[in-house]
Structure formats: C-alpha cells, structure tokens
Nucleic acid binder design. Structure first.
Length: 592
RNA sequence: GGCCCGGUAGCUCAGCUGGAUAGAGCAAUAGCCUUCUAAGCUAUGGGUCAGGGGUUCGAAUCCCUUCCGGGUCACCA
C-alpha cells in the first residue's frame, strides 16, 4: 500500500472515530508539500470541514494529532489555514531507502495480464523519415518501455505504406532518368535515393504542367493531365495487375528504402517485433465489411459502396468500401486490426499517429465496436501534435531542415564539438569518444522532443542549435556521470550499508522523496500515455541531486554514518536516473 | 460553416481529476572552481495564465461566451 493510501485510510478511520462521519478515501486530497512550507505531505482539509463540523484550523489540528498517534511515522505537523502539513520521521525515510535499495526491480510494477500491441512509425516508402517520424518513433518506443515497466506485455509493430501512387511516381522517374543507378553506385542512403526520384518526378510534372494547353486552374487537376503523371497511374495499374517487371522494380526500390530506414532505426534505437505492409493488407477488409453488412450495422448505398452511419455518435456517414469492392484506408485498418487480434489476442491496441488522424481513429474504433468486437474498446489513439518550425508547418519543399538523418547528423556534430571544447574526452579511445558523442547527441535530441506533452504541437527551430545545458538530456546524463565518478571512488564491489538513527538534512530528505516518487511516475505516465511525465520527473531528480552534490560532500562527509547515507543516496539516484532514462530510450554515460 | 485541439514570462515548456504567494530552462545581469566532473550551483529582474462572464470558501485548472492559431469534415493515406 502506498503512503498516500495509508494516510487516506487513516484519515477515514479518524473521521469515523472522532466525528462519527463516513467519508470515502477520495474525499481526502493529499499533495506533496510546497517547498516554502515545512513538511513532506499536505492534507487539504477544506473539503473535510463539512464532515467534522468544525473550522478548518481545528479540523486540521485534530486530524494532525490523531494521525501522529495512529500511524507512528509522522514526526511532526503544522497547520496553516486549511492545510495540514505532515513531516514524516527520518526513520521512515531511512526505511524507504533501505527497501528501495534492497529491491533491484525498483521501478518495475507488478505484472498485468492485459496484452498490448503498439503500432508506431508508419512511414511511406517513397521518401526519407522526417522530424515528425522522429517524434512518432520516440513516443512509440518510450511508451512501450513505460508500459513494460508498468507491467504490461507489449508487442511493437510497424506498418509500411509501401504501395500506391507515390511509390509509382518514384519508379517512373527512376526508370526515365536514373540510367540504372543504385544507392551503392551513387553513394546515397537508400531511402534518400528513392526520395530523390520522387522529387525528380514532381519537378518534371511541374515542367509538363507549364506546357499544358488549356490547363485547369486547380493545380492538382492540372498535374493529373501531365504525361508523366499518367505514366505513374499506368504503373499503378500494372502493379495491381501483378506485372512482373513493375513488381520487380517496386521490390527493388522498396528494398533500398528499408535498408535506409533500418540505419535510421538503429541510430535512434527503435525496433519492432513485427512489420506489416500495406501491399499485403490492402485487399483485405472486404470480408470484415461484409460481416458488418450481414449483421446489419453497415449498409449498402445505391451506388454499391458500403458505409456506416455514425451520426448517432456525433460523426458522419463514412464509406468503408468502394462500389467496385476495393479497399480504402479505413477498410485496411479494420482488417489489420482484426488480423492483429487473431495473431496476438491483445487487450489494448495503441496507435501512435499524428493528430491529423483523430477523426479516422474515432471512426475506426466505432466501426469495430459496431461489429461487436469486444476488444475494440481497448483501442487507443496516442495522438500527437505536429512538429512545426517557428514560421509554421514544416513543408518538404522547405529544404532538408526537417530531415531525420540530417537532424541526427547535426546533433552528433554539436555533441562532438561541445565535448571537445570542454575537454571531456581525456583518456578516451576514438571509439569510446564516438560512442559518447552519440549518447550525448541523441540524448539531447530525444529529451528535447520527449519532454513536451505529446498531444501538444511543438515548435522546433532548426536555425537554433540544440541546447546541452539546463533542462536537457545532457544535463541529466552529466548528473549520472558525476554519480558514477563517486561510485568508482567508493569502489564498485563495496557493499553499501544504510545507516539507522541519524538525522537527515533537507537536501537528503528532498532527494529521497524524489526517488520515492519514481514508481508513481511510471504508473501515471503509463495510465496517461505520456512519456513527458517521466522526462520532467527525471530532470527534477537530476536537478535535486546537483543541489545535493553542491551543498554537501559525499566522500568527505562529517562521519561514517553520513557518508554511508550519502553514498547510498547517490547510488540509488544514479540507478533511478538510469532506469528513467531507459524508459525514454536514452543511454547514460559512465563519464562525460 | 459543422466538429476536434491549442493560447501560461522575450523564447521553449511544466503546472490542468479545483487548493497556499503560478514554476523550470534558455536568453539578460551579478556571483561561486587550492575541496567528490563548472554540460554544475546561487542570486536578480521578467506574468492581465488570450479577453469577458459564471460556479465555489477557493479558478491557470470546471462551465458559458468572444477573439486568435491549427487540424479535420475524400470512394488520399
């Protein structure tokens, strides 16, 4: 039972005994005491005075006194207006440190039975990854780590949008202009290579648009009249007909893309247990739509299209299948969801997809529920905001500023530059130095993105170089390296003992309180699908440690017991930072 | 236009299931390395929590409304 629960239950009992009032635990609000007041936890008594039938101060006084008697771990309390501030005994806190230190699994919550499938990334195969994918991947990976820490078995899956008109456009441009070039022969990473042909296609289409006679005003309409666009459409038809030559080129180009993507995945440190391909699922879905038709939850329109009426749910009527029986986006997603349920029998399915698709996922979930799929209630759309530049949305035409690989290269370059400036790599081999740049650079990038609440859009300015000071990944990593330096001096194999019967100074107690919150944070960020809670927590923990580090000496503590305590606190802080950073997909260095 | 989401310090963000005097970082200014790593610590300045109304003992937080920004309303994905 958590401390909070203990305090709530004790308060409930006290209200019964002293005031004869039946209150429920959730009428008791408990906060962490604000810094400017003395105490560890605060009970807000205003909501309780109608049960005690006394003023706020008398109620708080009576409750404080009774809690102190009853629990045995409250050392003192004070009352300010309607706030009862409780200070726990040092003995209580030392016991907590002992318990946490004894538990190598601290931060790992009890196993849950609900199985989770988590889809993230979802790239198109006609162009390289950009900053939006980076946010997606960081959120997806981090969320999977957090859910695992919260006890859920998680299966990570990816979906590749590997077919359609876009990839055909790359293929057409390649066929015309590449002269058989390959990523190898041109020295260009595979996904960029294919993306370059996509760009080429659009250039040519634009030129051809200029030559059109009586071109329509609408640019999209005009584009469709260009010879090269028509060729792309023919290519798509050939692909759908299974034309061998077309399929071969398509496979070749996608293979290049996957090779390129894999390098980026490795660099970022994300992985998937299973890959899905739109080319394999796009024809599925007719069955599931028929099922809905038979059950009478979907209906056939006069033109033959099958649709679902969601007006009762505040949405619209939505087409699910074309009149010719071919799938559209939603059809595939219905089928893929069903397929995943058959494969994994999951209780929850999380989709990490940008908030542009909020409406789509509402429809998807409702349609599946109308089909009577019980498991569909476990669908959760982890909707995240777009990454924008200070002037607005990143457009692919705005150059390469939003390209994932460029972004990574840039942050690694800064990491190297900063590290060398600070002279931090004495005694490092070249390989160790490179590893450090990667750890720090990726730490900076990942933290920058993950510290923002997912559902909010975030502003990223490519003109300003990424920070390495203040609330950043490197700050937290640095704190870890400082702790590790102390632990090396203590000696790696030295058994740590946690003293009893000593008084804690404020920084020590504050640090311990922070460490003690870790599991609450894991629980909360999992429940809210929000890695930024972990990101903000670990920053606060590191900040608190740096104050501790500055204010007191660990190795030259006043006496043996103090030293034991501070070593144990340092060690546990280091472990907790490492665990929290792992939940965010970040490494933490031994030195920096 | 209908629906959805956002608006907190110059900038980037916390805080939002109502609780004390709204917090961090960056940027600015001023200090701290004969002592465990200064990617650190400390201090100062900086706010009409978009505007207005309401509910409440108490509102950045909940409700209504106006303004501003974004998304979506495809037989695209």
């Amino acid at each position: 039972m958590t401390l909070e629960q203990q305090l709530k239950q004790a308060t409930v009992a006290i209200f019964k005994e002293q005031f004869g009032a039946d209150i429920t635990p959730d009428t008791v609000t408990i906060n962490i005491t604000k810094k400017e007041h003395e105490g560890d936890y605060t009970i807000v008594v205003f909501p309780l005075i109608k049960f005690s039938k006394q003023g706020p101060e008398q109620t708080a006084e009576a409750l404080g006194n009774a809690l102190k008697e009853k629990t045995g771990f409250i050392g003192s309390y004070n009352v300010i207006k309607g706030f009862l501030n409780l200070s726990l005994t040092d003995g209580y806190w030392l016991n907590r440190l002992q318990d946490i230190s004894d538990n190598a699994q601290f931060g790992q919550l009890p196993l849950q039975t609900e199985k989770v499938v988590l889809e993230y990334c979802g790239p198109n195969t006609n162009k390289p990854l950009h900053i939006g994918h980076v946010r997606n991947m960081l959120l997806g990976f981090s969320m999977s780590e957090i859910l695992k820490a919260a006890g859920y078995p998680v299966t990570k899956v990816n979906i590749y949008n590997d077919r359609g008109i876009a990839i055909c456009q790359s293929m057409v441009a390649y066929r015309h202009f590449a002269n058989g070039a390959t990523p190898q022969s041109s020295g260009i990473k595979g996904d960029h290579f294919v993306g370059d042909w996509y760009v080429k296609f659009n250039q040519v289409a634009k030129e051809q648009m200029a030559e059109l006679q009586n071109a329509p005003e609408d640019k999209d309409e005009a584009k469709k009249l260009t010879p090269i666009f028509k060729e792309a459409q023919e290519t798509l038809l050939k692909w759908e007909a299974g034309d061998a030559e077309t399929i071969a080129l398509w496979e070749q180009m996608n293979a290049w893309v996957y090779e390129g993507f894999q390098q980026t995945f490795d660099m970022i440190g994300v992985d998937f247990q299973k890959d899905y391909y739109e080319s394999q699922t796009y024809k599925m879905g007719k069955e599931i739509v028929d099922e809905g038709l038979q059950k009478g939850v979907f209906y056939q329109r006069k033109d033959g299209a099958i649709a679902v009426d969601l007006t009762a749910d505040g949405l619209d009527e939505k087409v699910l299948l074309r009149p010719d029986g071919t799938s559209i986006y939603i059809t595939q997603d219905l089928a893929t969801a069903e397929l995943r349920h058959e494969e994994f029998n999951m209780d929850k399915m999380i989709y990490v997809v940008a908030n542009e698709q909020d409406y789509h996922f509402k429809v998807l979930k409702l349609a599946l529920q109308k089909l009577g799929k019980e498991w569909a209630k476990g669908i959760y759309h982890l909707s995240y905001g777009l990454v924008e530049s200070p002037t607005g949305r990143f457009k692919s035409r705005e150059g390469k500023t939003a390209d994932a690989d460029d972004l990574i290269a840039e942050v690694l370059r800064i990491a190297e530059e900063r590290t060398k400036e600070l002279g931090k790599i004495e005694g490092f081999t070249e390989a160790q130095a490179q590893e450090l740049y990667k750890t720090i650079g990726m730490g900076a990038l990942k933290y920058l993105i993950l510290r923002v609440n997912p559902y909010k859009k975030m502003i990223f300015n490519p003109e300003e170089s990424i920070d390495f000071q203040g609330q950043t990944g490197p700050f937290i990593q640095y704190t870890h390296a400082r702790i590790r330096a102390i632990m090396r001096k203590v000696g790696e194999n030295t058994a740590l003992t946690i003293p009893t019967g000593i008084n804690l100074v404020d920084v020590e107690r504050e640090l311990l309180k922070q460490i003690n919150e870790f599991e609450n944070v894991v629980r909360s960020s999992a429940a809210n699908y929000d890695p930024s809670e972990v990101a903000n927590y670990v920053y606060t923990l590191a900040k608190t440690y740096n104050k501790f580090y500055h204010d007191v000496s660990v190795l030259n503590a006043e006496n043996v017991k103090e030293k034991e305590l501070r070593v144990a606190l340092s060690n546990q802080t280091g472990l907790t930072i490492k665990k929290a950073m792992k939940l965010l997909g970040m490494d933490v260095p031994e030195r920096m």
